[in-house]
């Protein structure tokens, strides 16, 4: 049995109809926290005596205190969350990427390109903008989405913009990612993308200088396959060789289309 896009199972004795209906309406508890409902109306004081009215009044005050307490707690939590965010994030930034608080120089490291030749990451990337990402070709999810999204954005921006941008994908899995395999992989997105690999020491140095956490390779399973943990952001180095902004996994094509021309125009993210 096959149908496009979606399917439903329903077991014969199902009571799902009721449950589904229940899901359509918010549960009664959803409005219990509404402060408006806690505000006591003046006429709400219990009849029959000042003591009851006082109690109602106290209850109301307690509720006000509780509501104020909640607001203060929310503010504190918000403040703590804001502090927990990387110091590099600028909340008021109109850039799609994450603005770095400090400038980071392009890593001065020599790796190996997909033709097997030495590639000086700092000197052999003369275009006005260099985007750097660490990944591996057995990555079915994060890497293809990131590379494909950038490729689409470059296509949308046109060749005049695209030729000023150098995408550099550094494999952190040199065992499996031979230069040939890396070339084949990147060609699926954009043949202009540069692929680099190196010895484990060279790759560790590149990641250290790029200020990303070191990738790690798991032990192989019985089939010989293994998982790789890697930094998933793209780092943008401008014409002066400095990065002031990074783009996390999940950056949309529209984000690139709006940010890339600004970076190329020499605007400095801050």
């Amino acid at each position: 049995m096959s149908s496009p896009g979606a399917g439903t199972f329903r077991a014969p004795a199902s009571t799902a109809g009721e449950v589904t209906e229940g899901l359509d309406h918010p549960p009664a508890g959803a409005t219990a926290g509404d402060p408006a409902r806690s505000d006591p109306a003046p006429g709400d004081a219990a009849p029959g005596g000042g003591a009851a009215a006082d109690r109602a009044d106290q209850d109301a005050r307690k509720r006000v205190v509780a509501v104020v307490g909640l607001i203060v707690a929310a503010a504190i939590v918000g403040g703590v969350l804001a502090l927990l965010r990387p110091a590099t994030t600028s909340a008021s930034s109109d850039w799609a990427g994450t603005v770095l608080g400090v400038e980071q120089p392009k890593p001065e490291v020599v790796l190996t390109d997909t033709s097997g030749n030495p590639f000086d990451l700092a000197r052999d990337t003369p275009r006005p903008l260099t985007l750097l990402m660490f990944g591996y070709t057995n990555c079915p999810d994060v890497c293809p989405i990131s590379l494909s999204t950038l490729a689409s954005a470059l296509e949308a921006l046109g060749p005049e913009v695209a030729k000023k941008v150098q995408m550099v994908f550094v494999s952190v899995d040199p065992e499996r990612d031979t230069p040939e395999r890396l070339r084949e992989y990147l060609d699926q997105f954009d043949p202009r993308f540069v692929g680099l690999t190196g010895t484990p020491e060279e790759l560790a140095r590149a990641q250290e200088l790029a200020n990303v956490p070191q990738a790690f390779l798991d032990d192989p399973d019985e089939d010989g396959s293994y998982e790789v943990g890697h930094a998933s952001q793209m780092i943008a180095y401008q014409e002066d060789g400095l990065a002031r902004i990074v783009y996390p996994f999940g950056t949309r094509e529209g984000d690139w289309v709006s940010d890339l021309p600004r970076l190329l125009a020499g605007e400095l993210p801050s």
Partner: peptide
């Protein structure tokens, strides 16, 4: 009894 709906199924063009 579970009643399941599977939707928004999509596969990615392959890379490698």
């Amino acid at each position: 009894t579970p009643e399941l709906t599977v939707e928004d199924v999509v596969a990615s063009a392959n890379a490698g």
